[in-house]
Computed example of a mutant assay.
Amino acid sequence: MTDDSLRELLLSRIRDVADYPEPGVMFKDITPLLADPKAFTALTDALAGLCTRHGATKVVGLEARGFILAAPVAVKAGLGFIPVRKAGKLPGATLSQAYELEYGSAELEVHAEDLDAGDRVIVIDDVLATGGTAEASVQLVRRAGAEVVGVAVLMELGFLAGRRRLEPELRGAPLDALIKL
């Protein structure tokens, strides 16, 4: 499948929902894409190909929709899956990373023993918006001692400038978006 045909297929399965979760926001609903086995398989295959291309040894998925994408990608690529969760959701010893949102702050966590020096990690999420969650995840992976070999997302909302925020933190690792809006 070409990049253009993949983009067309994926876009045809993403539904716009006006004024959700608040007035003025156009929410990008990926549930129709997930419900279509052809589109979901094409998405999973494309992301797994990026894992292989970047030499990843583990896949990090970001809560919550990033889990839905990253877990089957890890299986397809033959790699381990590591969840990065909101604070307080993981039992046991964790590393945490605070970050700023548009209207406040949040915190992410990962199990301290899930990542090691020598791990080559690709971070996967559904949408790159302002870049705060991805930036915090990259910082968290590095604090765990692993190398970030890339960030991959289904779609990038370019008008929110997340790439500009995230790229300095990537230190030359690629940022791949299958769809750029």
Rank of each mutant, 00 (worst) to 15 (best):
T44C: 03
H111N: 13
A64N: 10
D119W: 02
R53A: 15
V73P: 04
G131R: 11
E100G: 09
T133I: 05
A129C: 05
V60E: 09
L128T: 13
V121P: 04
A106M: 08
Y103V: 10
A87L: 13
L79I: 14
A74K: 10
A117C: 01
F67V: 07
A134V: 08
T133L: 03
G80A: 15
G131I: 12
S96V: 12
L95Q: 10
H111L: 08
L62M: 13
I68C: 03
T130A: 14
I68G: 01
L43F: 06
P91T: 03
G118Q: 05
A112Y: 00
R65H: 04
Q97D: 09
A134N: 02
H111P: 00
A48K: 04
L101M: 14
K58Y: 01
D45T: 15
R65T: 02
D45W: 05
G132W: 12
V121N: 05
T133Q: 13
T94C: 03
Y103P: 05
G132P: 09
R53P: 00
L108W: 10
F67I: 08
A64Q: 12
E102Y: 05
T94H: 00
P72V: 14
K58V: 05
T44I: 02
L43P: 02
H54W: 09
V127Y: 14
S105L: 01
L128E: 13
A93S: 07
R65D: 04
L115Q: 04
A64R: 12
V73F: 11
A48R: 06
V75C: 05
E100S: 15
A117F: 00
A112H: 11
T52R: 14
Q97T: 13
L62T: 04
L115Y: 09
G80F: 07
E109P: 01
K89P: 04
I68V: 15
G61V: 02
A117R: 13
L115R: 06
E63P: 00
G88K: 10
A42L: 05
D45V: 14
R85T: 02
V59E: 00
D126V: 06
E107H: 01
A129S: 10
E109D: 09
E113Q: 13
F67Y: 14
G118R: 08
D114G: 07
G66M: 04
V73H: 11
G55N: 11
L47W: 09
R85E: 04
L79F: 13
G49K: 06
V110L: 12
G66P: 07
V127Q: 03
P91K: 04
T52S: 11
Q97M: 14
G131P: 09
G78S: 13
K86H: 04
S96E: 15
A98F: 00
G92I: 09
L43Y: 08
V59R: 02
T57I: 03
K76N: 08
L90I: 10
P83N: 03
E113I: 00
V121Q: 06
L101C: 07
A98N: 11
G88P: 06
Q97I: 11
L62F: 06
G61K: 01
A129R: 03
G118M: 05
T130F: 09
T130G: 15
D116E: 13
A71M: 10
L47Q: 15
G132I: 12
V73R: 11
C51G: 08
Y99A: 03
G80I: 08
I68N: 01
V110R: 08
V110D: 02
Y103W: 13
